[in-house]
Design a protein around this nucleic acid. Structure first.
Length: 279
DNA sequence: ATCGCAGCCTGTACGC
DNA sequence: TGCGTACAGGCTGCGA
């Protein structure tokens, strides 16, 4: 569920809570598969005794850099949530892994669907898959975006969701950006005009910026929705124009919004504003 | 290169 | 109310 704005929100809150400077005294693992490729023992040996020096983000990964050149990547996937707790506080059944700090507090990972992943390694290359540019990297200009689009025959929405093409965009913000740019989700990516590519570039940044400003998007109120640190909810849902609003009127033209499937993902758009599949 | 599908899990919403 | 089914914001691996 979490996309770039949601992960960025969590990262900022981790910093604000004072995660930097903590030293790992131990690791608790209730669901070993969260570690993918490491046993709990091997994982613990990588982190124990190390101090957290930097808390950052790359794509949808939370990155913790530790003393001695070790890094930890956390991917929240669909339902991952982080929260701090006193060591003695009771554990929820959905808590799959936690760091124990020397000060007695714990950073706990609550993950209902258990898709989330924690991975530790000395190099970022070993930690992260191939990832496209960060949408807010100054080097990621509209020119770069256009160059990356060329030769891409896939549907534009599929491309926006491809983390190797562009990092951080997920289903919500892809739909919102395409509506903003007035582009049909199934348009062939290399068929966009110069102006359309520029509009999409701006739209992606605009919807992500709004998402961050509103601390992410939380929908509904079940246990499977995005929550910020400590279970707080993001406020961006009220700004969404099309996502999961099929059947309701388009905020721009009033026509009923529709839902289709593109690349096996639910896709929401306005059949009037976002018209042609082909230029 | 690109596509579709299964799989990883559990909770929620909806139809009957 | 209960039960079955579809669906979910992510990603990977596989075969075609």
């Amino acid at each position: 569920m979490p996309e770039l704005p949601e992960v960025e929100t969590v990262v900022r809150e981790l910093r604000a809570h004072g995660l930097v400077g903590r030293t790992v005294a131990g690791v608790g693992v209730a669901w070993p598969r969260v570690l993918v490729g490491d046993t709990p023992g091997a994982f613990t040996r990588k982190l124990r005794g190390r101090r957290i020096e930097v808390v950052g983000r790359r794509a949808k990964y939370i990155l913790l850099k530790f003393s001695g050149g070790m890094s930890l990547a956390i991917h929240l996937r669909m339902t991952g949530q982080l929260h701090f707790a006193a060591r003695a506080a009771p554990r929820d059944v959905h808590e799959t892994i936690w760091l124990v700090f020397e000060d007695g507090e714990e950073l706990r990972f609550h993950d209902t669907r258990k898709f989330g992943v924690w991975k530790a390694a000395a190099s970022l290359d070993a930690l992260l898959p191939e990832l496209g540019p960060e949408p807010f990297d100054p080097a990621f200009t509209v020119k770069v975006f256009r160059e990356r689009l060329s030769g891409q025959r896939r549907a534009i929405k599929t491309l926006l969701l491809d983390q190797a093409f562009l990092a951080g965009v997920g289903n919500i913000y892809a739909d919102e950006a395409l509506w903003d740019a007035k582009l049909h989700p199934q348009r062939r990516a290399d068929g966009l005009t110069r102006a359309q590519a520029a509009a999409l570039y701006a739209a992606v940044r605009r919807v992500l910026t709004a998402g961050i400003a509103n601390n992410g998007t939380s929908l509904g109120d079940g246990a499977t929705n995005f929550a910020r640190l400590e279970g707080r909810r993001g406020g961006n849902a009220s700004t969404l124009k099309v996502f999961r609003r099929d059947g309701q009127p388009c905020p721009r033209c009033g026509v009923e919004l529709r839902r289709i499937v593109v690349g096996q993902r639910g896709t929401h758009f306005c059949p009037r504003c976002q018209r042609s599949k082909t230029p």
